[in-house]
């Protein structure tokens, strides 16, 4: 049994002008200790998928169909109080902007100790020891002396380390990290990536790493899901998806990324932009931009089918399978 199973997840936003479908039939699994990268452009639904799992979907957004199971138990329909106990204890969260994830009015030590005591039976002194240990583990020098510091006294990279310590407080099984390095400088980004990898290895924590940066995914993830217009376009082992992508969108996306050492005059260009939620085209939602589009793409919506070592939602590959 996988640690996290998401099955046919559907997230809707009811509006005055009708219901918008933000996530449409998304299914995936995360195994224990695995890093699943979720990559996509803005509006692809990657952050909403993460928010659905931690139960932080902002109203009026709601899960309209599907199931989310953690260790076999459904967590998508839990009452608020029960969800609160799981969130933080079994699922940790790291967000993009470390300054807004921390309370500016409390010291770092206070915030960590409080979180530990909410989720465990530790005494104040035990929680304090654990805090020092956690802060040291995430690479904050002289942690004991920094307990009394406020978030504004830390730099951006150090704050993100504190947020990671906060997410680790209760030894969660899964961490949902939504763009954890986007607000940071490149040299700090490399440090945070290395830290996440190490923690994942040491604690056997699974990470759902949501980012728009394929480079971060290539460095960190075991498997990657590429999202487009609320659906998974392709999912598979990171090496396969990066080096031998199967879905035309993934192929375009990989060609669009400038790479040091690749001397080309022009980058691959995917014409147009992602459709808005109000007018997602019929059939495959990528069809207006797809260089290999054919008749079937305009009428039928492709499901994920295995092609080689990855799984892609594209009629090009379905054809091979069924031998049409």
């Amino acid at each position: 049994m996988a640690l996290l199973e998401v099955e046919n997840l559907r997230v809707e936003f009811p509006t005055r002008r009708g219901t918008l479908l933000a996530i449409d039939d998304v299914s995936f699994q995360i195994e224990e200790g695995e890093v699943l990268g979720v990559v996509g452009e803005s509006g692809a639904g990657k952050s909403l998928t993460g928010a659905s799992i931690i139960g932080l979907l902002e109203p009026p957004g709601r899960i309209a169909a599907g199931q989310i199971r953690l260790e076999g138990e459904r967590i998508d329909n839990l009452p608020y109080d029960e969800l609160r106990r799981i969130r933080g204890k079994k699922i940790g969260a790291i967000f993009q902007d470390p300054l807004t994830s921390l309370n500016p009015l409390y010291t770092i030590g206070r915030q960590l100790v409080e979180t530990i005591r909410v989720h465990t039976d530790d005494t104040e002194a035990q929680a304090r020891d654990r805090t020092v240990q956690l802060l040291t583990e995430v690479g904050i020098p002289a942690a004991e002396r920094r307990l009394g510091s406020y978030p504004h006294e830390f730099s951006g990279g150090m704050r993100q380390r504190v947020v990671i310590a906060l997410a680790l407080c209760a030894n969660p099984k899964l961490i949902v990290a939504d763009e954890p390095t986007t607000a940071l400088d490149v040299s700090i980004q490399a440090q945070i990536i290395a830290l996440l990898k190490k923690l994942c290895r040491d604690h056997k924590t699974a990470i759902m790493l949501i980012t728009h940066d394929m480079g971060v995914i290539a460095e960190t993830a075991d498997r990657v899901a590429v999202m487009y217009a609320g659906r998974i376009a392709e999912i598979g082992p990171v090496k396969q998806v990066v080096k031998h992508p199967k879905h035309p969108y993934t192929i375009g996306l990989m060609g669009a990324i400038p790479i040091v050492g690749r001397d080309i005059e022009r980058l691959t260009q995917i014409e147009g932009s992602m459709p808005r939620l109000t007018n997602i085209p019929d059939g495959c939602s990528f069809n207006p931009r797809c260089p290999k589009v054919f008749d079937r793409c305009y009428v039928e919506r492709p499901d994920l089918v295995p092609t080689g070592e990855t799984t892609a939602a594209c009629w090009l590959h379905a054809k091979e399978k069924t031998g049409v």
């Binding site: 040299s187 490399a190 440090q191 290395a194 480079g215 290539a218 080096k243 790479i259």
Partner: peptide, 24 residues
């Protein structure tokens, strides 16, 4: 050299990298 070392490795060469220390 430090900056170049921080470029995420999209070619997946799996090369080991020097951990980058410190901040600006």
């Amino acid at each position: 050299r430090l900056l170049i070392d921080t470029i995420p490795d999209l070619e997946m060469t799996g090369k080991a990298r020097e951990p980058v220390a410190g901040e600006v």
